[in-house]
Design a protein around this nucleic acid. Sequence first.
RNA 1: GGACAGGUGGCCGAGCGGCUGAAGGCGUCGGUUUGCUAAACCGGUAUAGGAGUUAUUACUCUUAUCGCGGGUUCGAAUCCCGCCCUGUCCGCCA
Length: 465
Amino acid sequence: MIDLKELREDPDRFRRGVADKAMSVDIDRLLALDEARRSILTRQEVARAEQNRIGKELGPKLGALKGKVKHAHGDERASIEQEIAQLEERPAALKSEIQECEHRIGSIEPEWKSLWMQVPQPPADDVPKGKGSDDNVEIRRWAPAGWDFAKTFEGNRGFKPRTHTELLKMHKLADFERGVKMAGTRHYVLTGLGMRLHQAVLRYAVDFMADVRGFTPMGVPVIVKEECMVGTGFFPAGREQAYHIEESSRGSGHDLFLTGTGEVGLMGIHADEILSLDELPLKYCTVSTCFRREAGAAGKDTAGLYRIHQFDKVEQVVVCKADDAESRAWHAQMIETVETILQSFAIPYRLLQCCTGDLGVKNEDMIDIESWMPGRGEMDRDGSPMGAFGETHSASRLGDFQCRRLNLRYKDTHGKTHFAFALNNTVIASPRVLIPILEMHQQADGSIIVPEALRPYMGGIARIG
RNA sequence: GGACAGGUGGCCGAGCGGCUGAAGGCGUCGGUUUGCUAAACCGGUAUAGGAGUUAUUACUCUUAUCGCGGGUUCGAAUCCCGCCCUGUCCGCCA
């Protein structure tokens, strides 16, 4: 969430942020509610202060009188009782005023809080303006030697490509029918070498993060409390995307949610903590199963391994000082990590700078990395796919938005606390990444050459089929 | 799942209706002492919100916070209720 003080000081900055992100949050309403809330709060505090002061002065006296009244009789008793009643008059008046304030605050707060949570992190200044993904700006593209983006797959390789679904079937790498039988649409079973390849890319990515990048691998919960989802910024906006475990309806204390990314578990680790400077930056990665309802995506990418309800992902996060330059440096390293990995798989890809309209509530800057998938895209005259880029990675800078929501802070050298900056990035998401791997490395006979980098994780297997 | 016990500041631990934002200790930071280190001594040492002064830095006042939420009371860390969590024992089970 954003800083309300900053909102008060420069509301236009946030109005612009909302507009640039093509969202609608009533900033004026929020400001009005905030103003009202603070004025009532001030009134309540003044009353409380007096209550406390009176309490200290009269409290012990009252106690003594009340003790005395028990043993008093007749006139004496009556006069003591009167004295007590007098003394209690003012505190009673204060109490009712405090309660009234509390009720009024209670009536404002839900809407105030809800609006506050919806205000997005304004995009960084250098993020190009745009309405949606069509306005994203390609930064650069890369292809291995021997691959020319200007030519079709056939032009490059001399034969027509099979789609990954065909290849999966051909080599018995996945079983969609039985996946659907067990769990419904968008579910699958990875079988045999399909599962091994899946595991191989994950292990390769974790090892890269740990051994080359020096990140700490973590195993984190994938079923979490609502606070984690809110704290990481996925709720309330993304509520529809998460599977909901209604434990409360069975008498348990709280509901749980399945996480759609390891980012939730990684960022939740230090929620409500104040870290010391020497603990920063936090460099964590995890491999976790991710669950997504894909609500609103009905009919989209229904075939194959592209859009599924359950997958595994190696995710990295960095929590660093509240410093823009440092955050940008980590961002650059994340992108480099993804490029290194994709290059080691010899997969052509391109980098897109996401425009303002394509950013979510929590990020101020995001790069999407799209891999070339020969089996995607429009069909040519012969009914064979022309290939297309498909998103396989993204890397985001969140500023302090997420850490403010998580209440994750650090103490600087002067002992002052600050909300930390956070970044996150897909190191690898599988099985989606298997699509370009299978499709790019297929041979004319349908067999698939396993990228060299993965062979050590495949028991040395160099070829499928 | 059953039975007890318990959740207090960075940690340990007292408090069990007003004098307690909270004793004492440990840790930590600053200082004095010391040839250096150690010891000793002195002082500081939570977080958030609001208001104000100065307006980088800082300071003052004030409110809230003793697991979370609610209640009793003029007044709650302290009493009552609900929930969550932890420990121990028993049962069950990857």
